[in-house]
Each structure stands twice: as C-alpha cells, then as structure tokens.
C-alpha cells in the first residue's frame, strides 16, 4: 500500500466530491493532500511542485471536468518526462467499456466508479500499488 506520507493531488470540479475523496483518504491515514478544481489547475499544481521539488506521488482525478478533463490531464502527465510514471487513479461516474479502454490506452494506473465506499477506494489503491510495485 502507498505510505501514509504519500503526497496526493485530488482533482475534481465538484467541491463536495473533493471533500468526499479527501475525507476518505484521511480515513485511510493519508493527510498530505492538495486539491485542484480542474485539469488546468491540477497541471499548475504539478508544475509548481516540480519547481519546488515537492513532487506528488499520486493523482486521484475525476474524468468529467469543464476546462481540462481527467483524460486530457492523464495524457499530459504521461507525456511529461518527470511525471510519466506518476500513479494516476481515475474516478468517474461513468464506466462503460469504451471509456475504460480509452483510459487504459492513455496509461491510467487505476479506475474507480462512483458511487464508491472508503473500502472500495482502499482496495483500488492497494491493488494499484501492488501492480506498480510488481511492474518495477
């Protein structure tokens, strides 16, 4: 499992969902969390973190957002040399097969569908961490 001091970027345009994810992560003992309300503000946070040498270790992002979607953010992250291996968990209300395929093709590390419980998020994070660790 990710260590408790993992620096996490939570991205969602809905404030209430950011709170839900933050509180759920906090219940799993993760407290080093930064919020962004869209893919564009998330990208600014990532650039700021790289400039300050305070890199994020995990992104938890919604898919459907107005300015830059979670998928576009994922694609941008995967094409940046310093961020290409950054674990990326996609959170979405829609989980049809085509969408999942698209996210996998873009290099998503994990996928969680709303509604979700704290236990589901914990399982997804653990499975994602195991896959990433095995892949080396």
């Amino acid at each position: 499992m990710f260590s408790k001091d993992t620096r996490i970027l939570v991205v969602d345009d809905m404030r209430t969902m950011r709170i839900v994810i933050k509180k759920t992560l906090a219940s799993l003992q993760f407290t080093n969390i930064v919020e962004a309300d869209d893919g564009t503000t998330a990208w600014s946070e990532l650039e700021k973190a790289m400039a300050n040498q305070t890199q994020f270790h995990l992104i938890v992002s919604d898919w459907t957002m107005p300015k830059m979607t979670g998928l576009d953010l994922l694609k941008k992250v995967r094409t940046h040399a310093k961020l290409t291996n950054l674990p990326f968990l996609m959170v979405t209300a829609e989980a049809d097969a085509a969408q999942v395929k698209e996210a996998i093709a873009a290099g998503v590390s994990g996928y969680i569908t709303k509604p979700f419980s704290a236990d589901t998020l914990k399982e997804k994070l653990a499975a994602m961490h195991e896959r990433i660790t095995k892949a080396g």
């Binding site: 404030r15 209430t16 459907t64 209300a93 829609e94 989980a95 049809d96 509604p115």
Partner: peptide
C-alpha cells in the same frame, strides 16, 4: 454542488 454531483452519479449508474 452536491445536488449536481448526486445527479451525475445517479446518471452514471443508470447509464450502464
């Protein structure tokens, strides 16, 4: 925005 987010989630669930 919780009202919109709940509608979002209900729609996502139903869409499947």
């Amino acid at each position: 925005d919780g009202a919109a987010e709940l509608m979002n989630i209900v729609f996502g669930c139903a869409k499947k």
